[in-house]
């Protein structure tokens, strides 16, 4: 069964994601222009792009645990998922800059003064080198350092979720669910063996 799924997946070209995944952004923009996002489309567009970015980041984060624990192989799609996640984070940021805040001086003030924006911005900054090195040339050139560099994803995704938790009013579940899922996916990466070895070393010392 799993074998069949994996071999079926092998027949899907990864480039298809670069065609399909931008479509929601086009759809959101269309809705925003035609009244489909309600009376205040700016925040609605911003939130939709941000939420989809977070979902894609989670999808990227799920690839390794799915393979390790369920044997489902989606590794071929991971680069496309990651790059498309970056696209949505960028569009989310662009909406905030151009349509939402509008005033340049206030943009800087917000980044420095508002912790949830500082956190979101930091997440974006962490993603930039990852997007820039998401190509075969960089993988070859950086060698083992590429893997190390791309561990920054963990930090970026966490910052994205914290950004969401920090911006809502009152006690709301949805951002906490996102944070919980992300923490869970990160926890699955902790290798008990390594941990035990490290612990043994520490107690021996």
């Amino acid at each position: 069964m799993l074998e069949r799924v994996n071999s079926g997946l092998r027949r899907i070209p990864a480039w298809l994601l670069y065609v399909v995944l931008p479509l929601p952004a086009v759809w959101f923009l269309y809705l925003g222009l035609t009244g489909g996002l309600g009376a205040e489309p700016i925040k609605a567009l911003e939130h939709k792009l941000g939420e989809f970015a977070l979902q894609l980041l989670i999808a990227g984060l799920a690839v390794t645990p799915l393979r390790r624990h369920l044997g489902l192989n989606l590794i071929r799609f991971r680069r496309a998922i990651g790059l498309m996640a970056f696209l949505y984070v960028f569009l989310h940021l662009l909406t905030w800059l151009v349509l939402d805040v509008q005033v340049l001086s206030q943009i800087w003030a917000d980044i420095l003064k508002r912790p949830y924006i500082t956190v979101g911005m930091a997440g974006f900054v962490l993603l930039v080198p990852l997007a820039l090195t998401s190509n075969n040339f960089s993988v070859r050139k950086l060698g083992p350092r590429w893997r190390k560099l791309h561990k920054l994803t963990y930090g970026a995704v966490l910052l994205g979720a914290v950004h969401y938790v920090m911006l809502v009013k009152g006690f709301q579940l949805e951002p906490l669910i996102y944070l919980g899922v992300i923490l869970g996916l990160l926890a699955l990466r902790i290798e008990p063996k390594k941990l035990r070895r490290r612990f043994a070393r520490q107690s021996a010392a």
Partner: peptide
């Protein structure tokens, strides 16, 4: 507000390109 400026506001109904 600790998390955002109260110096300006967006009037609802101005669409996607509403100015503050």
């Amino acid at each position: 507000h600790p998390r955002w400026s109260q110096a300006s506001e967006r009037v609802i109904g101005g669409g996607l390109f509403a100015r503050k």
